[in-house]
């Protein structure tokens, strides 16, 4: 049973970690489009897959996962954008949960852009 006592235990475990994260400057930001267009196209499972995989791969300290509204590319939703300091933004389009996991593993963890899912590849 998920009790509040269990939540308290999680709090104690996390206290130190949160402080470490704030000190870090080298963060990667993953943004998932969650407007009507994104949601209708299947963004909810994509967002969950990204968040889960970031945690599973142990990347939480340097990676934030956020949501945004419509960016005007509704026909390409679900869209995932990756922002990293000093690097060009990467836009992944027509995503699903499996593709999202691959992006976290290969791009966010491995540093190698998954070219086949990017918008540049789609528009060719």
């Amino acid at each position: 049973m998920k009790t509040l006592a269990e939540l308290e235990a999680i709090r104690e475990r996390m206290r130190g970690k949160v402080a470490v994260r704030e000190a870090s400057d080298n963060t990667i930001r993953i943004v998932v489009g969650m407007a009507t267009c994104g949601i209708a196209a299947g963004a909810r499972p994509v967002l969950n897959a990204v968040a889960e995989e970031v945690s599973n791969q142990g990347l939480s300290e340097n990676v934030t996962v956020t949501q945004t509204g419509c960016i005007g590319l509704c026909q390409y939703e679900p869209i995932v954008e990756v922002y990293q300091q000093g690097k060009e933004k990467v836009t992944y389009v027509k995503m699903d949960a499996d593709k999202a996991k691959k992006v976290v593993e290969q791009h966010i963890k491995g540093g190698k852009v998954v070219a086949e899912y990017t918008i540049t590849n789609y528009k060719k």
Partner: peptide
């Protein structure tokens, strides 16, 4: 329970 410093957005929460 969590207090100020731990966000509800943390994956474990």
């Amino acid at each position: 329970v969590l207090g100020e410093e731990i966000s509800l957005g943390e994956f474990e929460i």
